[in-house]
Measured scan of single mutants.
Amino acid sequence: MDVCVRLALWLLWGLLLHQGQSLSHSHSEKATGTSSGANSEESTAAEFCRIDKPLCHSEDEKLSFEAVRNIHKLMDDDANGDVDVEESDEFLREDLNYHDPTVKHSTFHGEDKLISVEDLWKAWKSSEVYNWTVDEVVQWLITYVELPQYEETFRKLQLSGHAMPRLAVTNTTMTGTVLKMTDRSHRQKLQLKALDTVLFGPPLLTRHNHLKDFMLVVSIVIGVGGCWFAYIQNRYSKEHMKKMMKDLEGLHRAEQSLHDLQERLHKAQEEHRTVEVEKVHLEKKLRDEINLAKQEAQRLKELREGTENERSRQKYAEEELEQVREALRKAEKELESHSSWYAPEALQKWLQLTHEVEVQYYNIKKQNAEKQLLVAKEGAEKIKKKRNTLFGTFHVAHSSSLDDVDHKILTAKQALSEVTAALRERLHRWQQIEILCGFQIVNNPGIHSLVAALNIDPSWMGSTRPNPAHFIMTDDVDDMDEEIVSPLSMQSPSLQSSVRQRLTEPQHGLGS
């Protein structure tokens, strides 16, 4: 029994001894940790006062410096006190997940390849973020970090730009207890964004957000305005092209109309020559008939004078003969009235020469109109080809070629109108001259024959008349068809009918 009691006491004593040793060891460790923490804080404070003595007594600045020092320690893998190029590049790629850190790398180092804690602190103090207000930090939280649900907490804590380094380091107390961020992804996102802002300055999105919006609005307005302008120009170009094509079609119709007119003019001239020949034959025939009538009257007179026994018949025959003579005298007077005045042959040749010289100047004017028309046609064809290209319509709308071609078409039409008026006036004037003179002027042997017949020096006439060419005029020349008939041919039928009527009546009387 005593043995059992003793054994229990030994065990209890051993447990108490072991517990005492454990408590003693724990207290010694706590004392050691407290001592090392105090030494670390003293070291940080001493270093901060050495680097930035004016701010070393500010608790907030001291906390920010400690956060900057921890960031530098995080980047300094070899713990030599300086962050070199390789260490910063590795940190950007692995910790901040930048696949192309060239720009960030140059911004961080600049011309200094080794970055110490002092360099990093001075860079942070010179950053724009260091002077941010609470509102600017909240704006950064909303737009860049995209965590607007913590806006009220940031405003309540009055977190300005000075506190940004403390957000950039992993601090459970700061993010969990103070900021009350329960979501781990939110804490990590805030820490990475803050670290990027401390090292490289304010984000471009935050700094140029309004400018970007303004430029976007301006670009949209310019784009819409450009599209509207292109649409208006395209519609104007199509309308202008439609008008130009309509004018061009009018020129083609006028060309065909003048071609038909020239054919009718040539045909009328041929008919005029035929009528002139018929007139000469008719006059000769009338003279022959008059002579035959005179001979017949003389023969009847002689027969009736030789027959004294038939006085009654003779008297009747003499009366008939007197009627025939009276008819012959009237026919002769009618014929003489139409051919009583004949212009000198020299006057006819001079008038024919005048007509040919006028035709020369008319042909020159006509050729100029043809050239203008050809230029207008070529310009229209070029515009047609340009319209078939990809940007042809837009190019035509913004060039002056369309207006130039339109002006050329209008100029050609005006020139053709002048040529039309000149042709109309010339035909009418020479027709009236032919009526008054009674001989042909338009139809003549040609300028060379006339110059030779009148003994004129050929050098006075200049160049010879160009051959009539096919040219274009407007449709108002169609009503000239009825005026192209020679006035002499219009007189011939009346002359034929009057003479024939007077010759036929006596012959019928003789026949009876």
Rank of each mutant, 00 (worst) to 15 (best):
Ile71Lys: 10
Asp77Lys: 09
Glu94Arg: 14
Ile71Gly: 03
Asp82Pro: 09
Leu96Lys: 15
Asp89Ser: 03
Asp77Ile: 11
Asp77Arg: 04
Asn97Asp: 00
Phe65Asp: 12
Ser64Gln: 15
Val83Asp: 14
Leu74Lys: 07
Asp78Lys: 14
Leu63Ile: 00
Asp78Trp: 15
His72Tyr: 07
Glu87Ala: 09
Met75Gln: 02
Asp89Lys: 01
Asp76Ala: 03
Glu86Pro: 13
Phe65Val: 07
Lys73Trp: 03
Glu86Gly: 07
Asp78Tyr: 11
Tyr98Thr: 07
Asn97Phe: 00
Asn70Asp: 00
Ser64Leu: 02
Ile71Ala: 08
Ala67Trp: 08
Phe91Glu: 15
Arg93Thr: 05
His72Leu: 04
Arg69Trp: 10
Glu86Ile: 08
Leu74Met: 03
Val68Lys: 07
Glu66Gly: 03
Glu94Gln: 14
Glu86Leu: 02
Lys73Cys: 03
Leu92Arg: 14
Leu92Trp: 09
Arg93Lys: 04
Asn97Lys: 01
Asp76Gln: 12
Ile71Tyr: 14
Asp76Tyr: 05
Ser88Asp: 11
Glu87Asp: 12
Arg69His: 06
Val68Asp: 02
Val83Arg: 12
Ile71Asp: 12
Ser88Lys: 07
Asp77Met: 14
His72Lys: 13
Tyr98Met: 00
Glu87Ser: 11
Leu96Gly: 08
Arg69Ala: 04
Ser64Arg: 01
Leu96Met: 02
Glu66Val: 01
Glu87Leu: 14
Val68Asn: 07
Phe65Met: 14
Met75Leu: 06
Leu63Ala: 00
Glu87Gln: 14
Glu86Thr: 10
Asp89Arg: 06
Ser64Met: 14
Asp95Met: 06
Phe65Gln: 13
Val83Tyr: 14
Glu90Met: 02
Asp84Tyr: 10
Phe65Leu: 01
Glu66His: 14
Gly81Arg: 13
Asn97Ser: 01
Asp78Cys: 08
Phe91Asp: 14
Glu90Cys: 08
Leu92Gln: 09
Asp78Ile: 15
Asp84Arg: 13
Leu63Phe: 00
Tyr98His: 10
Ala67Lys: 01
Ala79Pro: 10
Glu87Ile: 09
Glu86Lys: 02
Asp89Asn: 02
Glu87Trp: 14
Glu86Gln: 13
Ser88Glu: 07
Asp95Thr: 12
Lys73Thr: 00
Asp89Pro: 09
Asp89Ile: 01
His72Trp: 13
Asp84Leu: 11
Asp76Asn: 13
Leu63Glu: 00
Arg93Ile: 11
Asn80His: 12
Asn80Ile: 11
Ala79Arg: 04
Glu87Pro: 14
Val83Phe: 09
Val83Ala: 11
Glu87Arg: 11
Asn97Leu: 01
Asp89Thr: 05
Val83Gln: 13
Lys73Gln: 12
Gly81Thr: 15
Asn97Gln: 00
Asn97Tyr: 00
Asp95Lys: 05
Phe91Asn: 15
Leu63Val: 00
Arg69Pro: 04
Arg69Lys: 01
Glu90Gln: 01
Arg93Trp: 08
Ile71His: 09
Phe91Cys: 15
Arg69Val: 07
Ser64Thr: 00
Asp78Ser: 15
Val85Leu: 05
Ser64Pro: 13
Val68Glu: 06
Ala67Pro: 05
Tyr98Ala: 04
Ile71Leu: 03
Asp95Phe: 08
Asp77Trp: 07
Asp84Phe: 12
Phe91Pro: 13
Asp84Lys: 09
Asn97Thr: 01
Leu74Ile: 05
Met75Tyr: 09
Val85Tyr: 12
Ser64Cys: 01
Gly81Cys: 11
Glu66Ser: 05
Glu90Phe: 08
Asn80Glu: 10
Gly81Pro: 14
Asp84Cys: 06
Leu74His: 08
Asp89Gln: 01
Asp82Trp: 13
Asn80Gly: 10
Glu66Tyr: 13
Ser88Ile: 06
Phe91Tyr: 09
Leu74Cys: 04
Ala67Asp: 06
Ser64Glu: 02
Arg69Ser: 07
Arg93Glu: 13
Asp77Gln: 09
Asp84Ala: 07
Val85Thr: 03
Val83His: 13
Met75Phe: 15
Glu90Ile: 02
Ser88Leu: 05
Gly81Ala: 09
Phe91Leu: 10
Asp76Glu: 14
Phe65Trp: 15
Asp76Cys: 15
Val85Phe: 05
Ser64Ala: 05
Asp77Phe: 05
Glu87Phe: 10
Arg93Gln: 12
Val83Lys: 10
Met75Trp: 10
Leu92Gly: 11
Asp95Trp: 00
Arg93Gly: 10
His72Glu: 04
Leu96Val: 03
Leu96Phe: 05
Met75Ile: 04
Arg69Gly: 07
Asp76Ile: 15
Asn97Trp: 02
Val85Asp: 04
Glu87Asn: 05
Asp95Ala: 07
Ala79Val: 06
Ser88Thr: 00
Ser88Trp: 05
Glu66Lys: 00
Phe91Thr: 15
Asn97His: 02
Glu87Met: 14
Asn80Cys: 09
Asp89His: 03
Asp84Val: 10
Asn80Asp: 05
Asn97Cys: 01
